[in-house]
Design a protein around this nucleic acid. Structure first.
Lengths: 171, 171
DNA sequence: TAGCACTGCTTCGGATTCGAAGCAACTAGC
DNA sequence: GCTAGTTGCTTCGAATCCGAAGCAGTGCTA
């Protein structure tokens, strides 16, 4: 109707494809290194990193973690369970909200994190940062950060609008 | 030994995290749209797009597809099987190399692709391109393309160095 | 206080993913 | 032509992931 031209500029497509491919390959490479050195999946590493590096107390609510990492809530429960089994984090109900669960990184978790971090950074440098100058990296961060913020704002992915109790309108 | 400082600049970390999060969220959003409108997964869409838009003949070898898309070979076999079941692609042994399999998009595949493409572009615009000016997009593409090329070159992800027949050196 | 909607997390079933192993075809050396 | 090594794809089992449904705690209203 109003958009008879769904076509994209070549540069737009190029940016899109390059972005997705770079992220995919990078994730793949990082995942392999993490698996080899620290027996961690990429998600597990991200969770540990968020707890150990990003949070002053080393604790976070599950939902906040799910927002930071991209994955679904159930996936987060699964991975947090694995991390807890491995003794790298602990889970305890929040004192404020009894239903919230606070995840806290343990000493063993911090050790594991410190153990894999150098290699992680190494892979990052080798795969991702090598072809970029310092100015390039700055520019990249400056370009992507607003996009991330925009995405975070519009669809509240972790707050999936719960289906109403009332009968659906069809089917 | 030679790298006592595995630390990264904040901008480097920022670029890394922003990249991964943007890619993850974008993929998530796109996936949802594709599922709703065209009953396609993101991988399936990528495969169709590569066949229908990127290849003049509409055909590709499996390995070439695996390289373009990031996934593993076995995953590709699985998805190609699904696409074939749905009648969107056809598989046939290559006349040149009997072991190669040429995947060809069917008319139904092209239709499906055309059906989901406008919405796909719409999501792209809304989530990804909206906060970026035309110059930004150009810059982004210019920054990411060399990185992609670099990644493609260094670790031949699809050509996993096959384990030698000879007994391994340890364990 | 009772009732009701909402939020936070987990459980469950099914789909997707990967790596390793296996099979078939090609290539090189003899 | 024959044997060994390599490459292309598939099969297999296990791990991971997601969405829907379920359970429990919280807050609001009367």
């Amino acid at each position: 109707m109003s958009d008879p031209q769904p076509r994209l500029e070549p540069a737009q497509l190029g940016a899109y494809f390059a972005l997705m491919e770079v992220a995919g390959l990078l994730r793949h490479g990082v995942e392999q290194q993490l698996r080899d050195v620290g027996d961690l999946s990429y998600v597990q590493f991200q969770l540990l990193a968020r707890l150990g590096l990003d949070s002053p107390t080393g604790s976070r609510r599950m939902t906040d973690l799910a927002d930071g990492v991209v994955y679904s809530r159930s996936g987060l429960t699964y991975q947090a369970g694995l991390l807890e089994q491995a003794g790298l984090v602990e889970r305890a109900p929040s004192p404020d909200d009894e239903r919230s669960v606070m995840v806290t990184i343990t000493d063993a978790g911090r050790e594991r994190l410190a153990h894999v971090l150098p290699g992680h950074v190494e892979v990052l440098r080798e795969m991702f940062l090598k072809p970029l100058s310092r100015a390039d990296v700055d520019a990249l961060a400056a370009l992507l950060t607003p996009v991330r913020d925009h995405m975070r704002a519009s669809p509240p992915r972790s707050a999936t609008p719960r289906r109403r109790k009332g009968p659906a309108s069809h089917t």
